[in-house]
Nucleic acid binder design. Sequence first.
DNA 1: ACATTAAGTGATT
DNA 2: AATCACTTAATGT
Length: 198
Amino acid sequence: MQPELIEELQEKSALHYYESEEYILHVGDQMSFIPIILNGSIKVLRENNEGEELLLYYIEGGDTCAMTLQCCMRKSKSEVKALAIEPSLVLMIPIENMEIWMEKYPSWRAFILQSYHSRMMELLETIDAMAFMKLDERLLKYLIDQAKITGSLELSLTHQQIAEDLNSSRVVISRLLKQLELKGGIQLFRNKIVLSSI
DNA sequence: ACATTAAGTGATT
DNA sequence: AATCACTTAATGT
């Protein structure tokens, strides 16, 4: 990135710290900032009218959420919600700077487009997973993704939370996890799942 | 010791 | 694969 841009970034944007499990964004929130995740990780969820959630994708260090990019440029409200899954540092950039920087800095433009593209790819991936993969495969993928994101083979998750992310029910998840444990891929504990191999 | 919450299980659709 | 109804186990007060 150009040094000038970095300077402006530091000057115009605000740094925000989020605890694990803290919401960054709710459905319907008016967007006035573009978040860039510096470190930690965020998951982005879609919510239906009954308040059920579906995991869309994760955002990690150095990325932005494509959804918010859209919302910001149209000055509309958020269609998704975002939740920190570990302590995370987020850079909040006022939307006014978006358009200006898009023209002023090629590297900013490239960053936004690149980010948009990779978010899109991840969305396609989760669509594929829902359409073509059976739940047990999806679950395994979910566990592996989660391990990658948090950088740990020990996942602090309840079966209930997993069920919510995958839009399934706890009982089903419990049973599938049990099968995985019997096959030897994972070990189950209360509030914790340990992957033995990836 | 009791209540609460997470996880396991059989039966039913 | 989902739901119900119930049990068992772990944890907090």
